[in-house]
Design a protein around this nucleic acid. Structure first.
Lengths: 328, 328
DNA sequence: TACCGATGTGTGAACGAGCACACACGCTAG
DNA sequence: CTAGCGTGTGTGCTCGTTCACACATCGGTA
């Protein structure tokens, strides 16, 4: 900046004013702009951040185990939604992958080191070190999904997993299915537990724990294993609520191999309304997750916090309608 | 830092030495560490970067249109591979999403603003503004995929798309297929064009342009549309090379609906060896892309450049073997 | 006693910007 | 003639570090 001030024959202060607004004479301005163009000057952001005490960047963290992250159909859409909002507000969204303890530690330093002004956190688990850190340093943040702890200090954005699971199960009942099972996943995470709760609520007295197969992850393989287990336990099963579309796809594959027709013999419903849903045979009835909207709202909430807004909502719960296709 | 120096009764210099290594007496060290723990002090990275003129972070950019990014089965694995290497070297990998012109501009500022010491760029297109910028500011960088321009200034990591396409097409020929078509995608990108070239080379004189359906993206829908087109143009088609596994999955769906047996009536091969490949019915023969290895090598090349290594290889081409399953 | 190297420690000057303040200038009004 | 004003501009301090250098202390040696 000193160099370009010298080149334009003015002082650093004046250069700063053309960069950040202020009274500058037209002559000085053009001279400075010419110098900037010639030298190819770019303001050094490290210095700017140091002085301004903010970076105009927001971190996006997914605390999921990495294998799941790659499969999750929603994360990409959430990122794009969040980026759209942050981008308009002039913020750079940077996403950080956490794949090992070493990563956790480094990301913690990164967050507390002033690289970002806020954070969006997907699928935080209870007592995750990163979650705790964010609480400690009081960084503007938003959880996506029901936060396990810290619920009262950090707002969250999500859907009503319990209600939606209840709703789609009810309609499975309403269409005449009598022996309805569920392939439940990731019970250690909020969404997993909530979906199972909704399922249980919908069935009420007719809930039979023997008809719940529990698998670790929301993936195709989980669907395959879960469905095999259910078929073995109850060959007369005629309805299945799979905790995600990928799981449903795996389940349908097993049903097909077992010679059961979907939806003739067995009705299958999923969750997410991801790309999987339209590609199964027949297309899957499922719960639509407004992933992009979730991202947008999350970004808005961090942005408002960063801007010093003190009364941001504690939570935003978005509608997640049933999408009725042909699998049930 | 001044505060904790005062608290420990030493000078800033000594504090700096316990943080960054140097001669410090045990007493001073413990006093300082105690003070650090008590105050909860974290070094300010903006200030550190300012002085050191590096950030110990590497950017990961995907220049793809966002819809494709979400579908691409390889990007996630490439990121994890790159992160593994960078993480060990103490670097923070940050990925930036580019979804609009506004993003392009902001990312350009971010890159030239000293937030990162290097960049890994996936699927750069010719004359992309970001690509050009990186060339201009001479930032350590690596392309993943065949770079369109700047090939001689920036190294790249990838596979031999031409050779692999030729190989898998040849084996389609060797197994007796006579009327072999291709669903080609993304011809404006290197990988798309190269795969078509390989296909053409393998067929030699028997290459028939009427048997190439061109679709915009490497996705399931592209496979559906491409296969419909091929069937219409040549009902007697008995072999299909789909430019990606997702495309192959779409194509197989169309073939199934048309009553053709795979591999009985038509042999189908894909490309990528992604999660799709194992889930199609029958499982797909395809080309394995070593995505994680690609990520690792890319990270290594940037890291070496950042460390000042002057003779890093111009390119790294990794083996991409055929995986022979049941679809052909 | 003088000098030496080794081992710790303190100090001031950067790094590249932002910001507050002071000040110079031309003009008008008292 | 000077005080007051608006418009531009220059200057010095600050942000939290790093780094080079200077300095102090100590045991050992000539």
């Amino acid at each position: 900046m000193k160099d370009i001030a010298a080149a334009a024959g003015v002082s650093r202060g004046t250069v700063n004013r053309v960069l950040n607004g202020g009274y500058v004479s037209p002559e000085a301005r053009t001279a400075i702009e010419a110098a900037i163009a010639e030298v190819g000057y770019v303001p050094n952001t490290a210095a700017r951040n140091l002085k301004r005490r903010r970076s105009e960047a927001v971190g996006f963290l997914a605390l999921e185990p990495h294998a799941v992250l790659l499969e999750d159909p929603n994360i990409g859409a959430i990122m794009l939604g969040a980026n759209a909002v942050l981008s308009l507000a002039g913020y750079q969204m940077v996403s950080l992958v956490i794949d090992s303890d070493r990563d956790t530690e480094r990301v913690a330093r990164y967050l507390s080191g002033g690289f970002v002004d806020g954070a969006i956190i997907v699928s935080a688990r209870a007592y995750d070190p990163i979650t705790r850190l964010i609480g400690q340093i009081a960084m503007p943040a938003v959880f996506i999904g029901h936060p396990p702890d810290l619920a009262n200090t950090i707002p969250f954005v999500g859907i009503d997993n319990v209600g939606s699971a209840r709703e789609i199960t009810s309609r499975l009942i309403a269409t005449g299915r009598r022996r309805i099972g569920m392939i439940a996943c990731a019970l250690n995470r909020d969404s997993g537990g909530d979906r199972l709760d909704g399922f249980r609520q919908a069935l009420g007295d007719r809930f039979d724990p023997a008809l719940v197969a529990e698998v670790p992850h929301y993936d195709y393989l989980g669907g395959v294993n879960g469905m095999r287990e259910l078929l073995e336990r109850e060959p007369g099963i005629d309805g299945v609520f799979a905790a995600s579309d990928a799981v449903a796809a795996g389940a349908m594959q097993v049903l097909r191999e077992a010679g059961r027709d979907v939806p003739g013999d067995v009705g299958v419903v999923g969750f997410d309304d991801s790309a999987w849903a339209a590609r199964t045979q027949p297309p899957l009835s499922t719960i639509h997750q407004p992933a992009r909207e979730i991202g947008r709202h999350a970004a808005e909430l961090v942005h408002r916090q960063i801007s010093g807004d003190t009364d941001v909502p504690r939570s935003v719960v978005l509608p997640s309608p049933v999408v009725w296709r042909h699998s049930a």
